[in-house]
Design a protein around this nucleic acid. Sequence first.
RNA 1: GCCCUCGUAGCUCAGGGGAUAGAGCGUCCGCCUCCGGAGCGGAAGGUCGAAGGUUCGAAUCCUUUCGAGGGCACCA
Length: 546
Amino acid sequence: MTPEELSTAISACLRDAVAAGQISVDVPESVRVERPKSRDHGDWATNIALQLGKKASMNPRDFAQVLATRLADADGVAKVEIAGPGFLNITLEAGAAGELARSIVEAGAAYGTNEALVGHEINMEFVSANPTGPLHIGHTRWAALGDSIARVLKASGANVTSEYYINDAGNQMNIFALSVYNRLHGLPVPEGGYPGGYIKELADAVADAHPDIRNLTAEAALPIVRHAAYVAQMADIKETLNDFGVEFDVFFSEQELHAGGAVEDAVARLREQGHIDDTDGAVWLRTTDFGDDKDRVLIRANGEPTYFAADAAYYLSKKDRGFTEKIYLLGADHHGYVNRLKAIAAAAGDDPKVNIEVLIGQLISVNGARLSKRAGNIIELRDLVNWLGADALRYSLGRYPADSPMTIDPELLKKNTNDNPVFYVQYAHARSRAASRNAVEKGVERTDFDATLLTHETENDLLAALGQFPSVVAQAATHREPHRVARHLELLAGAYHSWYAACRVTPVGDGTVEPIHRTRLWLNDATTQVLANGLDLLGVSAPEKM
RNA sequence: GCCCUCGUAGCUCAGGGGAUAGAGCGUCCGCCUCCGGAGCGGAAGGUCGAAGGUUCGAAUCCUUUCGAGGGCACCA
């Protein structure tokens, strides 16, 4: 019996009790069951009686008694006890939990997928770094997190498109082009330009593609430089993301938005909706109608659209493409945009509480210093991957929630990789594979399976951790918090190691192979599967050997 | 000035109304003649920034306050 099945059984008991007139209360769709901290409290516990007791106008213990009596008769439930103010402590029948090991092995890579978000059409936008330089440490967290969020959303049944918005329009691209142009001619970095060493590499790439570039006038050369440098830079960004295991379905160009007239269309559509003001020669979106603290300019008095106008057009594009939920993953330095982005959604006729979701994450600091690509002292994502390894980096970033401020000490990570829990989890996977290979070699095979043999307390704990996995994935998806998966994998790895120390899959020495060994091989392989499935959600490899 | 996020063990951080607040690292004590010791078992270490409030019950929710980071453009 899995925790989900137990939860379902409890809901059924509640409904039956209502039908029988024993209690009068609205039965929630799902009941949360928790693994109690103390083993004395049984296999699973729920505080549902405490939560519903008051609503049912009953003493929580009396409420618990009604529920306990019914639940004790459910299949797979051995014992139900009422504790404290009205906790229900549930003990399962021997073997009721063990069946899970076989079903996980049979489900394979599909174990953990769930239907929590079936029917959701989600656009997941993240990274969206300007194509004016390499991805750096500031993008690293969003790349890892956004990709993992997309993965847990998909695993929970949502239809997800991962998207990268390329800010390839606007003045910063001109400055970028001028920076490369100056470099080609050995001129100093322009005012406010990009000084990084990568500018030289881009200049070389431009010169390779256009050998005569230095002979052209600035007027003729700049558009060519701009485009060639942009192409080279985007190729570099895509390669870096690929090496980091981050996949995008769509790279969306802001430039094409402008070129295709989408920005003008967006302004016209918002005007039709009645949210446009023409003041001081500029065109304004009245975002204050929707909770923003001031109105925002869409078209400047000089006729140029603002960045915000492109944002509006981009939002409408997402809406037109059928996405009901548009998720933006932004750094804390962008939190000022949240209200106006939501205002766009509202002005477009969407519900800002449902159709748009802006996740704001805290920035990473490195040794207390915040690095800037404009300052030229960047730490590149590519270098971090080469330095620490994609697995360690993905995992260490993926195991913290987005709004948790993080301090990474590269020196510490570099010199002592054992600090990183990724090794604990990967090691558990590699160890379980070794145990399995060894068992097969000694003649232990997954032929028969007898769940009632899995009685050791470490087996109880291990099965519980395995059983919770699908609901952990579902919660990670609904909360957009993949770190829950990472934390659960650490719990699972710990349960596995404890079990491994106490229970043998392979008989000692020349001992005969018993049903218990074969049954344990199922449990071992089920653990392998869940570790691999969970690591995949985090974009981390599951090694056969380490 | 206004707004957002965050203050939990020596360090990095989980937990976000329920039972004795957790993990990793670090420190200390045990455990390889048998499936991977990158492991296991145990110990020490906490007024959950502070003060009020709501509740049967608060690290968790509310208010105030202190501290850290970030944001408040006809920039992108």
